[in-house]
Design a protein around this nucleic acid. Structure first.
Length: 270
DNA sequence: TACAATGTTTTAAG
DNA sequence: CCTTAAAACATTGT
């Protein structure tokens, strides 16, 4: 599930635990989701600590606790954050449960492509300090975007949009939406874009992030019917703009959906 | 049964 | 060291 907007939605869910103490952290330290993390240390450090803040950055989340607890969460493909009852039983894929007075903050992730990180200390850990420029920040510029595309010039543009080092928070449906709205074929080499196309891609990237954060992040209604979003799942979809049958194929290792009429690119890419 | 699923990470090759 | 492409990861649902 989680791309930019959904990550923000889940962050807000755990936000319900703000300013409340963790009575106990329950987890299975040997689960894959804790790979590379000292899970027992996490459990000890969070017992009695208060949740004092949270942030999202692309698909990464950080939950800050008193006494120097820094909890990083990535939801992978199937991760979710929810709030349950105080004594809620741990379900099969509930890998981390923070018990608070009156409620439980729960992380579930069946496939465990997600990851939990933990750092105990005064300073922010490296994994939170070294982050790419956020798409909606003023530092994310047209020039930067053009440079990033050139740097990955031979890869298909779809694959480049999925690189978190350049487009943090963009996932599979957002990449397809950006390319459809910008009228660019997903298999076009990133470095072969005309200036006008780079500009369209840049503008649509910012726009789609903004709307996704508002609508998906706030669970505030549905994405516009005029978007590709609602038609791109499964075969047989039709382009909202011209009614053409949508194409589906694997591009950049992921299922990709596009309109062969709106997103023309010449024979060699179809 | 076999394949696909809103994502990285690893491995191998250029 | 850098980029690219493909496989791997673990589980569920169609």
């Amino acid at each position: 599930m989680p791309e930019l907007g959904e990550v923000e939605y889940f962050r807000k869910q755990w936000g319900k635990g703000l300013n409340k103490k963790v009575l106990a952290a329950e987890l299975n330290a040997d689960k894959k989701i804790f790979r590379g993390t000292d899970a027992p240390a996490l459990r000890e450090a969070l017992r009695g600590a208060k949740l004092i803040g949270s942030e999202a950055h692309g698909k990464q989340m950080l939950f800050r606790f008193s006494k120097g607890g820094w909890l990083g969460i990535h939801l992978g493909m199937t991760g979710k954050l929810r709030v349950g009852a105080a004594g809620a039983a741990r379900l099969k894929h509930d890998h981390l449960v923070l018990r608070q007075e009156g409620q439980s903050l729960i992380l579930s992730d069946p496939r465990q492509f997600g990851r939990v990180l933990f750092h105990h200390g005064k300073e922010a850990p490296d994994w939170w300090r070294d982050r790419p420029v956020e798409i909606l920040s003023a530092q994310f510029t047209l020039k930067m975007t053009g440079q990033f595309l050139l740097r990955h010039g031979r890869a298909p543009i779809k694959a480049v949009l999925l690189l978190q080092s350049g487009f943090p928070g963009i996932g599979n449906w957002m990449a397809d939406e950006i390319l459809w709205q910008a009228k660019i074929h997903p298999r076009r080499p990133a470095g072969g874009m005309r200036p006008e196309e780079v500009r369209r891609l840049f503008v649509k990237t910012k726009h789609i992030c903004r709307v996704a954060l508002r609508i998906v992040g706030g669970h505030d209604g549905d994405l516009p019917e005029t978007w590709l979003f609602g038609r791109r799942w499964g075969r047989g979809g039709r382009c909202p703009a011209d009614g053409a049958a949508l194409e589906r194929a694997t591009v950049g290792g992921r299922t990709t959906c596009w309109c062969p009429c709106c997103q023309r690119a010449g024979e060699e890419f179809n």
